[in-house]
Design a protein around this nucleic acid. Structure first.
Length: 836
RNA sequence: GCCGGGGUGGCGGAAUUGGUAGACGCGCACGACUCAAAAUCGUGUACCCACAAGGUGUGAGGGUUCGAUUCCCUCCCUCGGCACCA
């Protein structure tokens, strides 16, 4: 930035050179005053126009706040300030999603207990957050790793269990053989361990699940009434993956067994030539175990073994290549007596539908590939709408939209859509099939074989039967006498205190559940705990007193759902589904009135650096600190907002921050030197018009979260003010109000200088007068044959004839008006067009 | 492969019930101030063209229209999500 031969002392001087407006003095001053006045603490019980303004709470990492935090939090706060000035009681909470892997990994590396490192991180993070200057009500902070919080995480588990929404079953987990630890799905991306890169294997363990599938339809239906990005709704719809189809039962020849196949395309069933079952399918297991004799026993057995051992990585490497084994059995298609060999293949997923599919290679790409791999017959039963009878060897024969049935007896000639309904009716009438709805959404696996999480409030009697821990024993404290070095087992197993505690309370031979809960459980209800009852005596230091409920029903009724929720789109199919599910369950259990937690949702864009996502491992994380130190919080936050549309994000570059810094200095200078004692009536027309236009423009921009255009409108206003040379005090105050949501510190300072009463953030948002926006004269564009040939200034009230007349007289226009004018176009206030 | 977003000056971006494309800012150029620089202020800045006039121009090609960044069709590129979901 500077020539290298400038001495160091001069650098420092330039950096701290006195400026008309010095944020390093002004910003702390106002932050202190806001805090002293408890300006942002909201009495929840007294709100008439509540506005619950929330951002996704951060993880308290040991690193400093990064640009991404600022880009999320600062604009969200600007919106909250705007809503406050519009007359709402804005509640803006902040908290910490404090359980989770990074702290545990840090503990494994250094031996520092997570509780310790997290407490320290939270403390420093609060200090950093305060420097942004947001309207956070710190009196209502939450920290999910504290007993008074996770008490409710455990309470939630108990309620789920009590109402049959939590159950335990055998399931496979990701396991890293090198680290000797279970991995969360996020840690096992692309089939490799996040920490050491070893290939992840699957391990069978007894796991707790929450029954999200039960809510699949309601999760789908509820989306309709939400003010959410359409993109996010689509992602959730796809994730839930509702499919209407039919379960068809096929009897297996020479056995008493049958196989049920789920299909959405029963119309093509006359083209079925084989059946494929998943390796985990009971019939496949039977063969492997020898419970059912098969000439292919050995092949099936070794195939199942191979499929089980296959790592996710190998699976992906395989791509669409089909493998499988013939069971030697055949199923019979009731429709036409066709015998269909039953195969086992891992392209069929055990977790979807019935874990068995009917192979129609003529009209399904995967079935086609399978048939090709094992030379099974391919039969066409649909032709394209244009009567296309394509080559049987061609792959692309998947007609999903339209097509005509052939070789299908009573379906022949029907469109696939009509045939689909007719065959379903037929199969149901015959008792061979049953219409079903299938969902892609799985039940939520909430067990984690990790230390740093909320312990699952379950104990086992000596027979191993689970029992819920009575509520009076909550919080069920996370033990501290644990070893952090991975041993391949849940760390809680090594706590003597934990086991002793359990036996003391429940009896000899009783054992606690050693798993903890997924951190997404903690974050699935935190919006309710922000609203918790803070009155004294509700929670004593022993954590054992009778605690008021999860949430006061009256507060929940007035404050929920969250009015505006801002956070990254990466949670579309995780946190944002879990939270909706939990809210619905709590509603059904009678604890809350609303069913949806977040009425309006907005995703901020992603800030990248040199095109890549900022990450510690890539070493491209940009720290806001030096910018904030030099230019102040207001400048930095406005710069982020000015970069482009809030929902777009963008690639980081500091080249333009100077422009915002100049704007702030100029604004402060102008307001400090050029405000006169005139009254409003003495203002000139141009100023009045500019002011009203600015109000309109800034208001509309903020309403739609277009912070970039709000700032540009303010810049235009300042340009106008400087052109005018001076301004009356009332108008100056209006400009400062417009500035307040975007540059809160600067606005308070200027408001004080101008002699404003109270805090600027408590002022009413200015209104504009539409009559003052219109100008006396309008510039008309004049086009000939659609091409611009000139402009003409006319009085605003000029009628068509006058404007056209004036336009014709324009020298440059007249030049082009040769020959007959066929048509005259007049758009009031905008344009005149001639067609010759 | 499927679903969704997006392609506008040197750069970030503005403007869409179709009506003067490029607001605002950065950068750049020139000028003022200064011994000089920084900072600040002023002027200019889509491209072609010596100016004017004119022409070209919102990813590419086509269409509708007096007029298209905006509407329709075909294609290309790019970003995000899901991915053997029957």
């Amino acid at each position: 930035m500077w020539d290298t031969d400038i001495p160091e002392i001069l650098h420092t001087y330039i950096l701290f050179m006195p400026k008309p407006y010095n944020p390093s003095l002004v910003e702390p001053k106002w932050q202190k005053r806001w805090e002293e006045a408890k300006l942002y603490e909201v009495d929840l019980s007294k709100a008439k126009k509540p506005f619950y303004n929330m951002v996704m709470f951060p993880y308290p990492s040991g690193d400093k706040l990064h640009v991404g935090h600022w880009y999320n939090f600062a604009p969200a706060d600007s919106y909250g300030r705007f809503m406050r000035m519009k007359g709402h009681q804005v509640f803006e909470p902040m908290g910490f999603d404090a359980f989770g892997l990074p702290a545990e990994n840090y503990a494994i590396k250094t031996g520092v207990p997570p509780a310790q490192s997290i407490a320290k991180n939270v403390e420093t993070m609060i200090e950093q957050l305060k420097r942004i200057g947001c309207m956070y009500d710190w009196s209502r902070m939450v920290n999910t790793s504290q007993p008074e919080y996770y008490r409710w995480t455990q309470w939630l588990f108990l309620k789920m269990y009590e109402h049959g929404l939590a159950y335990k079953k055998l399931a496979s987990v990701n396991f890293c053989p090198s680290c000797q630890t279970v991995l969360a799905n996020e840690q096992a991306q692309d089939g490799r361990c996040e920490r050491c890169g070893t290939e992840v294997v699957q391990k069978q363990l007894n796991q707790w699940f929450w029954n999200t599938r039960k809510y699949a339809q309601r999760l789908l239906d509820g989306l309709e009434g939400l003010d959410w990005p359409e993109k996010t709704k689509i992602m959730q719809r796809n994730w839930i993956g509702k499919k209407e189809g039919i379960d068809i039962t096929y009897s297996i020849k020479n056995t008493n067994d049958s196989i049920v196949c789920f299909t959405t395309r029963p119309d093509t069933n006359f083209g079925a030539t084989f059946i494929v079952i998943a390796p985990e399918h009971p019939f496949a297991q039977k063969i492997a175990e020898g419970a059912v004799a098969s000439p292919h026993h050995r092949e099936v057995k070794s195939y199942l073994e191979m499929a089980r051992k296959k790592t996710e990585l190998e699976r992906q490497a395989e791509g669409m290549k089909k493998t499988g084994a013939n069971t030697g059995y055949v199923a019979v298609n009731n429709l036409n007596g066709q015998e269909m060999p039953i195969w086992v293949s891992d392209f069929v997923l055990a977790g979807f539908g019935t874990g068995a599919v009917v192979g129609v290679p003529g009209h399904d790409l995967r079935d086609f590939q399978f048939a090709k791999a094992f030379t099974l017959p391919i039969r066409r039963v649909v032709v394209g709408p244009d009567g296309d009878t394509s080559n049987i060897e061609r792959e692309e024969q998947v007609q999903e939209e339209a097509g005509i049935m052939i070789h299908s007896e009573f379906l022949d000639g029907l469109s696939i859509l009509d045939a689909k309904e007719k065959i379903k009716d037929y199969l149901e009438k015959k008792g061979w099939g049953k219409r079903v709805v299938s969902y892609r959404l799985r039940d939520w696996l909430v067990s984690r074989q990790r230390y740093w999480g909320a312990p699952i409030p379950i104990v086992y009697d000596p027979e191993g039967k689970p029992h819920p821990i009575p509520e009076k024993h909550l919080p069920w404290l996370l033990p501290t006498d644990v070893e952090f070095k991975p041993t391949g087992e849940s760390p809680l197993k090594h706590s003597k205190e934990f086991i002793k505690r359990t036996e003391k309370l429940f009896g000899k031979g009783w054992t606690p559940e050693f798993d903890t809960m997924d951190t997404f459980v903690c974050s699935s209800f935190y919006y309710l705990r922000y609203l918790r009852d803070l009155s004294p005596g509700t929670f004593d230091s022993s954590h054992r007193s009778q605690v008021t409920g999860l949430i006061d029903p009256h507060i929940e009724k007035t404050w929920m759902p969250v009015s505006m929720y801002i956070g990254g789109p990466e949670h579309a199919c995780m946190h944002l589904i879990y939270a909706r599910f939990v809210m619905m369950a709590l509603h059904d259990l009678g604890y809350v009135k609303h069913q949806e937690p977040f009425q309006k949702l907005v995703h901020q864009g992603l800030i990248t650096n040199q095109g890549a996502k900022m990450s510690k491992s890539k070493g491209n994380v940009v720290s806001p600190d030096s910018f904030v130190e030099r230019d102040g919080s207001d400048v930095f936050r406005m710069y982020l907002m000015f970069m482009g549309p809030f929902t777009d994000g963008g690639d980081w570059s500091d080249t333009g921050i100077k422009g915002i810094s100049r704007f702030v200095q100029r604004m402060a200078k102008f307001m400090g030197e050029k405000v006169n004692t005139n009254t409003k009536s003495e203002q000139n027309k141009a100023l009045l018009q500019g002011l009203n236009r600015s109000i309109k423009s800034v208001t509309e921009s903020l309403e739609t979260l277009h912070f970039n255009t709000a700032i540009s409108a303010l810049m235009q206003m300042l340009n106008l003010l400087e052109e005018q040379g001076s301004v009356d005090s009332d108008s100056a105050k209006t400009v400062v109000k417009l500035l307040a949501p975007l540059a809160p510190h600067l606005a308070e300072e200027l408001w004080e200088q101008l002699g404003g009463e109270g805090f600027v953030v408590d002022q009413h948002w200015p209104a504009y007068d539409p009559a003052l926006i219109a100008s006396d004269t309008v510039t008309y564009a004049v086009q000939v044959n659609g091409k611009l040939r000139g402009t003409v200034d006319m009085p605003a009230d000029a009628v068509k004839e006058e404007v056209v007349e004036a336009a014709r007289k324009q020298e440059n226009v007249a030049k082009y008006l040769v020959g007959e004018v066929k048509k005259e176009i007049f758009v009031a206030g905008k344009l005149v067009g001639f067609v010759v």
